[in-house]
């Protein structure tokens, strides 16, 4: 198709890379708060139930390279996962599993979430981390660090315990996401470049039957 030739023959200079990270876990564990804390640098005054998928992003710099980190904050209620959130599992570069240390059920749900990712054919090579949130409520903890660590080990992922609300160290949440970004940067030097899209608009032709011919990998 002619437009695809256009696209590939006039490549603009490479743009910043994008790391796409999906954040999942039961409703109420603090996914929205964590992603907000990372992108906006503070705990939100008010959150609301996430319906479907919310998107947040932040540009970070690693070794002088500007990288866009996209966080896909998903709905926790089970009914949304099955048919709705699917679409967003595609092409993710990393997964952040979140549970609430004061809520044992949210920890017990983790195997189901992991299975969910497996079903969306996100293999072991996609970096995954486990985050135990709400550590400011230590006194009310229902999930011990030991148990969580064992679980994380058995799934070969690192565990981070933190608090979106008042992390002992203010940059802790940021540090966690940065760890993921570093990992991604070292792992996939080239594979993650953003597809070129010129001035931001893609030349579009009238609709044709074979849209598949479009080599738009956006």
């Amino acid at each position: 198709m002619e437009s695809s030739v256009e696209l590939s023959s006039s490549l603009p200079p490479p743009r910043s890379r994008i790391f796409k990270i999906i954040v999942i876990g039961d409703s109420g564990v603090g996914k929205t708060c964590l992603t907000y804390r990372f992108c906006a640098g503070k705990f939100p005054d008010k959150t609301e139930a996430t319906i479907g998928v919310d998107f947040r992003e932040k540009v970070i710099e690693i070794d002088g390279e500007k990288i866009k980190v996209q966080l896909w904050d998903t709905a926790g209620q089970e009914r949304f996962r099955k048919s709705m959130v699917q679409h967003y599992y595609r092409n993710v570069h990393a997964i952040v599993f979140v549970y609430d240390i004061t809520n044992a059920v949210s920890f017990q749900s983790l195997p189901a979430w992991i299975e969910e990712c497996r079903q969306h054919s996100l293999g072991q090579d996609v970096p995954r981390i486990l985050v135990g949130n709400k550590c400011d409520l230590r006194g009310a903890a229902r999930v011990s660090t030991d148990v969580a660590q064992k679980f994380a080990d058995s799934h070969s992922m690192p565990l981070f315990e933190t608090s979106a609300k008042s992390p002992g160290d203010n940059d802790h949440v940021e540090a966690i996401f940065m760890t993921v970004a570093h990992k991604l940067k070292s792992q996939k030097p080239l594979a993650l470049s953003q597809p070129p899209s010129g001035d931001g608009t893609v030349p579009l032709k009238k609709p044709t039957e074979d849209r598949g011919g479009y080599s738009c990998s956006c």
Partner: peptide, 16 residues
Amino acid sequence: VLECECDMASVHHLLS
């Protein structure tokens, strides 16, 4: 919409 970058994230973000 048409001025938006043609990728899922940008369009989803704009529209939502």
